[in-house]
Design a protein around this nucleic acid. Sequence first.
RNA 1: CGGGACGUAGCUCAGCUUGGUAGAGCGCCGCGUUUGGGACGCGGAAGUCGCAGGUUCAAGUCCUGUCGUCCCGACCA
Length: 486
Amino acid sequence: MSAELSKQPVVKEVPPKGDDLSAWYTAVCLRAELVSYSPVRGCVVLRPYGFGLWENLQRELDARFKATGHENAYFPLLIPESLLMKEAEHVEGFAPEVAWVTHGGSEKLTERLAIRPTSEVIIGTMYAQWIESHRDLPILINQWCNVVRWEKATRPFLRTMEFLWQEGHTAHATAQQAREETLKILDVYRDFAENVAALPVYAGVKSASERFPGAEETYSIEALMPDGKALQSATSHDLGQNFAKAYDITFADADGTTKHVYTTSWGMSWRMLGAVIMAHGDDRGLRLPPKLAPLEAVIVPIVKASDRRALDVAEQLRAALAERGFRVRVDDRDQTPGWKYAEWEIRGVPVRIEIGPRDVESASVTLVRRDKRKGEEGASRNVPTSGVAEALRETLGAVHENLFAQAKEFLTTHTFAVSEREEFLERCSSRAGMIDVAWCGRPECEAFVKAQTGATTRNLRALEGQARCVACGESARVRAYFAQSY
RNA sequence: CGGGACGUAGCUCAGCUUGGUAGAGCGCCGCGUUUGGGACGCGGAAGUCGCAGGUUCAAGUCCUGUCGUCCCGACCA
């Protein structure tokens, strides 16, 4: 963005995105009525428009879980302290951010209860009761719930003390099945990110230091934000037998011996919505991917004192589109059309349908795309009223593709394959984006890079051929994306 | 958790230095005229100045504490 353009906000109440991403992000979250701050520190209220985003995320992701054989269930919010303590690494990882219930009414509890920061513990305990035989496996359960982590610094969606997410927990007879499950879900997350959220991501395995406490392996999808920082958007963990051993989850196998199960866990939170907001938004506010948008289209009737026909036409069109499954509303509030255009642009509705006297005369409507700038090629077009449903379907698809293409272009042009040490450190320090390098895989090496530059490995993938670690010069074992992260 | 900034009307902020009866713009409500990119006129409502103490005849203003928000860093799946 040019300096001249940056001086005046394009939209009042929303500062230019390129000037200060943090200020832009917070302003948009509030102004678009996604969230409100609440009287509780670090906790936000998810308003109806924001909850609409979450509902669509849920619907799309849940359908994918169901399609891969998972069922939903619900487990308790509170976890007895003694239960939590059984898996040492896990406890150590979460201890600093667990909130505790110490009293019931005025009576002090004999045992403290943790408010779940995640549910491996309580679910593992139940699995121990439910599983007896290899015939009981696999167990494939997901729950949609809230969790609490006592965070020090919070921001809407990206890091809040209480947040909404889904957590899947599965148990399997063999290590291989657990690994396959972990990778299957990783691919569900990648598919969701790309085809629902219009967000290109890098999927891969986490380094040892970035691994979930108690996991054998953690996999993640990582998106790139406009400031060059990476945002971990979902994780999938292969827990091996660690939790099975801690919580004594065993089964009688076909060969007659008793064995520990292999478990997995995986989660995506409303943090994904933060990634969507930041990656796609522009100087005029939100730009929502159609599949997540609470409203796919808003109809703005333009009425004159002498001609109020547009109002009826708009309502008929709304009913016809709703009938065909579109999420639409008519904005018939007492405001000028220009006011409504600006308002719905801030709130990111993918398509605006204008109906004025001219359109009524010609039995047509005007479709305007939010993802394009005013006057840009293809930003608006006039279509016959009879063909609106088809045109809308087509346009929503095009908006998704365009948002994805723009985000992909950003990711591609901000991913740097680097083999020189100096350039590597410089790009890491300057938040250039995803720095793609050959890496030795040693925790000391990663710690050194973090201390020098603030960047860590986001995730790793196989190294082809032979190379030297870009940071320390030892023999490289993997390829890694380094970046500073949220 | 460390460093910095800020809490005054729904929002953005002025007023604080030098203590003396609470201000503006936008928004909101009513009526009328309007409506193809944030309309206009007239009238109106709205704030225990984040909260709690203290100093003072008198505190939005000075002092202490506390809660919250933002930024930078540390921490964090």
